[in-house]
C-alpha cells in the first residue's frame, strides 16, 4: 500500500504560500517586528523600580497585600539575577500574543456560543490546535515569517487561542435559560441580549479562559526562543546548548516567577470583577 503523501502536501502548501505571498509576508513580518521592538525599547527606558511599583499596584487591586508582597519580591529577584531585559522581552511577547489571541478568540467564542453550527465546526479545529505538539507550529511560522519575534507571536497565538474560544463558548452556553428568556421576553435585540445579559453573566468563565490563554502564551513564548523569540527562553536554550546547569536554573526560576505573577494577577482581576457584581 502506498504511503499517503501528507508531508509532501503540507510542504507544497507552505511552499506555495511563501512563493506567492512571500513579499507581503516579509513586509508584514518586518513592520510587526519593528512594533514589538519598539515596545521593548520603551519598557527598557522605564526604570525597573517604577515597573515593579506598577505591578505592585496592580497586585494590590487584584488580590490584596499577600499578592503585592509576593509580586514585589519575585520581580526584585528577577532584577537581582540580572535577567531584567530578558524578562521584559518575554513579557512583551506574552502580553502581545495573549492580546491577539483574546481579540480574535472572544468574538469566535461568542459566535460558537450562540450558533450550534459554528460550535460544531470549530470544536475539532480547536482540538487539533491544542493537541498538535507545539514545536510543529514553529516550522511553518519560520518559513512564513523568517526568524524573529513575529513568527514567535504567530506560533504562540495559534497555540494559546483555543482556551479563550472554548471558555467563552462555554460561558455563553452556561447562561441560565431563564435569563436569556428575560432578555427576549422584554424585547432585547440580539446585541442587547449579548451585552447586557450573556457577556456579563459569562464573565467569570470568560476570565478563566483569558487566564488559561495567558499561561499557554508564556509556555509557548519560551519554546519559541528556538526560532529567535529571544527573552528568558533564549537563556534556557543557551544553557541547554552549553550544559550550564546553574544558568539554566536561573532562567527557569525567572519563568516560573513570571508565570505565577501573571496567573495570580489575571485570576485576581477576574475575581474582583465577579465580587463587585455580587457584593
Amino acid at each position: 500500500m502506498p504511503k499517503f503523501p501528507l508531508a509532501a502536501i503540507i510542504d507544497q502548501i507552505v511552499k506555495w504560500l511563501v512563493e506567492n505571498f512571500g513579499v507581503v509576508l516579509d513586509a508584514f513580518s518586518e513592520s510587526c517586528g519593528e512594533i514589538i521592538k519598539g515596545f521593548e525599547k520603551y519598557l527598557n527606558i522605564v526604570p525597573w523600580w517604577l515597573l515593579i511599583l506598577f505591578f505592585a499596584v496592580l497586585a494590590w487591586k487584584a488580590g490584596g497585600w499577600k499578592l503585592t508582597v509576593g509580586t514585589v519580591l519575585g520581580l526584585f529577584f528577577i532584577y537581582n539575577l540580572k535577567l531584567w531585559p530578558a524578562f521584559l522581552s518575554t513579557l512583551v511577547l506574552v502580553l502581545l500574543s495573549a492580546l491577539v489571541s483574546i481579540v480574535i478568540g472572544i468574538p469566535l467564542g461568542i459566535i460558537a456560543g450562540r450558533s450550534d453550527r459554528f460550535h460544531w465546526f470549530i470544536t475539532p479545529i480547536l482540538d487539533f490546535m491544542q493537541t498538535m505538539p507545539s514545536f510543529v507550529y514553529l516550522i511553518p511560522a519560520l518559513l512564513l515569517f523568517g526568524i524573529g519575534k513575529v513568527p514567535a507571536v504567530f506560533a504562540t497565538v495559534i497555540f494559546a487561542m483555543p482556551p479563550v474560544i472554548r471558555l467563552t463558548d462555554l460561558g455563553i452556553r452556561q447562561v441560565p435559560v431563564d435569563l436569556v428568556e428575560v432578555g427576549t421576553a422584554f424585547g432585547s435585540t440580539p446585541w442587547q441580549l449579548l451585552w447586557k445579559i450573556q457577556l456579563p453573566v459569562a464573565l467569570p468563565t470568560l476570565m478563566a479562559g483569558i487566564n488559561q490563554t495567558m499561561m499557554l502564551s508564556l509556555s509557548m513564548v519560551v519554546i519559541a526562543s528556538m526560532i529567535g523569540a529571544g527573552g528568558l527562553g533564549a537563556g534556557v536554550l543557551e544553557a541547554i546548548g552549553q550544559l550550564k546547569i546553574g544558568m539554566g536554573f536561573e532562567y527557569g526560576v525567572a519563568v516560573v516567577i513570571m508565570a505565577i505573577i501573571l496567573d495570580r494577577l489575571s485570576q485576581g482581576i477576574g475575581r474582583s470583577l465577579r465580587t463587585e457584581d455580587r457584593k
Binding site: 441560565p176 431563564d178 435569563l179 428568556e181 428575560v182 453573566v201
Partner: peptide, 11 residues
C-alpha cells in the same frame, strides 16, 4: 413576564 425562579440578573 414574571419567572418561576425569579430570573434576576446577578450582575
Amino acid at each position: 413576564m414574571v419567572f418561576q425562579q425569579f430570573a434576576l440578573l446577578p450582575h
